[in-house]
Structure formats: C-alpha cells, structure tokens
Amino acid sequence: MKRLTLTTVVALLTLAFASVASAKAPTFSGMQPRVASFDFLVDYSGSMMMQHKGFGEQKFFMAQRAIQRFAERIPELGYTAGLRTFAKVGEVSAQQTFNPDTVYAAAGKLKQTYEVFGRLTPMGDGISYWTQNLYAGIAQPTAVFVVSDGENNRGGDALAAAQAAIAANPGLVFHIISVADTKEGQALLDNIAALRPDRSVSVIAEELITSNTACEKFARDTVYVNGVRDVLRTAHFPLGKDSLTPDSFAILDEAAAILRDSNRMVRLDGHTCDLGSIKLNNDLAIRRVETVKAYLESKGVRPTQIMTGFYGENVPMIDNTAERNRKQNRRVDLNFFY
C-alpha cells in the first residue's frame, strides 16, 4: 500500500477555493490503461458534513474538491467511469466513457449541506450494495475509489464487505481518498487498501487538492501507465484448461529473464476462444492469468512488476471461425513496457 504525506493547512485553505471500454484490449501509444472501468464511491453520511479536526474545513467539501482536481489530471484512454454515494445510496453519474468534465460536474452536483444527526455511516452496506450491483460476474480490471472519513457505525463490517467484493471479482481493486480525522477511521481505510497491497493506493484528500503532481502520480498509480511497449509474447492453453501448453514454458522462461533485474513491467491479459458461456470464459481467463503470474513469480519476477487484465472471449486475436483460429485465442498476452 502506498501513502502520501500531509502538506500544510495553509496550502489547503489557499487552493481549496480555486477553481476502456470493457471489451477493448489495452493500447500502448505512450499511455496504457490499468483498468477497464472505475467508480468513485463517496461517503454521504452526516459525519462528512462536520469540520475536519486537523484542517478546519468541511470534510465533504475536501472530498468533493479532491475528486474534481483528480479527475482533471486523468487522461482519456477509453475506460468508463461513474460516481455513486453511500449513506444515502445513490447514483450521481452512471457508468460511461470517461470524460473529466463529466466527473467534475457530477461531483459538483453533490450537496455540501444536509443534516448531520441521524445519518450514520453504513460503509460496509454501501460497499456491498454497489459492488454486487455493478461488478458481480465481471472479470475486467476495475477500480473503486472509496472517498470517506472511515466512519462505519451502522450496518455490516466494511472490511469484510471489501474482502467479499474482491473474492467475487479478482479484477477489483479499492483505492482510498481519505478525509479521516480519527485514528480509527484512517485505520479502517488503511485495512481496506491493505487487501491488495501490491495494487491499492491510498492518498489524503488534501494532497490532491493542493498538488497537481500528487494528482498526476495518483492517476498513474491507479488508472494508467505511462510507458511504451517494447516486447510482446503469448502463452497458449488447451481448450477449457488453465494449464500451459508445452511450448509456452520456454516463452515464459524468456519473459522472466527479460523482467528479472530490470525496471520493466508486464501486463498479463487473459483471453479465451468463443466456446462455452461468457461466465465460464471470464473465469477461465482469470485462471489462465493467475497461472502465468504464479509461474513468473516462481522464476524471480517481482509481484510489483506484474499487472493483470481479463478479457474472456471479447478480444480474439483472430476470428473464431475454425479450430486452428480458436487455438490461437486460448492465450495470455504478455505486454512488456518501460
């Protein structure tokens, strides 16, 4: 998990008032998306209307501005995005092709004044509701930005809800935009991020409000990679299986040699042919990626060098018009980049 440091309250007060589609494979024209989609899940509870104990600003206003500033620094690479709330549960912006102006406007629609008392925080229920309704059965790389002060004083356990969501969708990762002002609140947010320590990123809202550099780094760490592909390799699999074909081991040994003792990264994209149900093929694509990932790590590749994507039958290398073509589509593509 990555954490960013605090800056000064003075900077916050100065700047606070300043104004892939899922079926597409990643591209490498200088930038590539880490995810096919992402959502902001915004805490809309009474505690967010209170003043932050450290910064002296309303927590919800800090959260709103952090989302807007962050959105302005995200490049348009074909992923989809939405904005939802919990406590109360609501959809502010439905999933659609990402545009920074759309997200900026959606965040601006959220009210900054509502009742404080009687609006407790069922964060666990909010995570469960949205992940079950949005991501159940979806194998695409997906990010959820939890924007909250970490209060969870009603309903189900938030950490358990996040664990269940990841178990149901291995492509899901939670990132944190924190406006916590208690140790307990920050600890809960840290624990959610720690569920995927190699992928989750945690940032303090004040950093995004006050620093373009922090916004750009957060975007690179969560939604895209700034790099150019220089090598492509492909490992193949038998029909309906997640075990490698014999000729793939030499390919993966070469891949491990490329990655060891280097700063390169690799994205593993799992694919299938069109035989079988969509769910079966999504699950199979995930298992094939996990097979390749485990093999590379056994050969000394660091987990932090590996990103993953799962595309099922959506992105064939060649039309599934004959068995010889289908064999080519039962694969994991290894995209190497700097």
Rank of each mutant, 00 (worst) to 15 (best):
G46S: 01
G46P: 04
G46C: 04
M49W: 12
M50Y: 03
M50C: 01
H52R: 09
H52T: 13
H52C: 06
K53G: 10
G54D: 08
G56D: 13
E57Y: 10
E57P: 04
Q58V: 12
K59R: 15
Q64E: 14
Q64F: 11
R65P: 09
A66C: 12
I67E: 00
I67G: 05
Q68G: 14
Q68S: 15
R69V: 07
F70L: 13
A71Q: 03
A71S: 13
A71L: 15
P75W: 07
P75R: 05
L77K: 00
L77P: 01
L77E: 00
Y79I: 06
Y79K: 12
T80N: 07
L83R: 07
L83V: 08
R84C: 01
A87W: 02
A87H: 01
A87F: 02
K88R: 15
V89R: 10
V89L: 11
V89E: 15
G90R: 14
E91Y: 06
E91K: 09
V92M: 00
A94C: 12
F98D: 02
F98W: 06
N99P: 10
N99H: 15
P100E: 01
D101G: 08
D101E: 15
T102P: 15
V103Y: 02
Y104K: 10
Y104S: 05
A105I: 15
A105V: 11
A106M: 06
A107W: 00
A107V: 06
G108S: 02
G108D: 01
K109R: 13
K109M: 09
L110S: 07
L110E: 09
K111A: 06
Q112I: 13
T113S: 09
Y114M: 09
E115S: 08
G118M: 04
G118F: 10
R119E: 08
T121M: 02
M123E: 05
M123I: 12
G124A: 07
G124K: 08
D125H: 12
I127H: 02
W130G: 04
W130Y: 15
T131P: 07
T131H: 06
Q132A: 03
Q132G: 00
N133V: 09
N133Y: 14
G137C: 13
G137M: 12
I138S: 01
Q140Y: 14
P141N: 04
P141Q: 05
A143R: 05
V146A: 01
V147I: 11
S148L: 08
G150R: 02
N152G: 04
N153V: 03
G155M: 13
G156F: 15
D157K: 07
A158F: 03
L159I: 12
A160R: 14
A160M: 12
A161Q: 00
A161C: 06
A162Q: 01
A162P: 02
A164G: 03
A164F: 06
A165T: 05
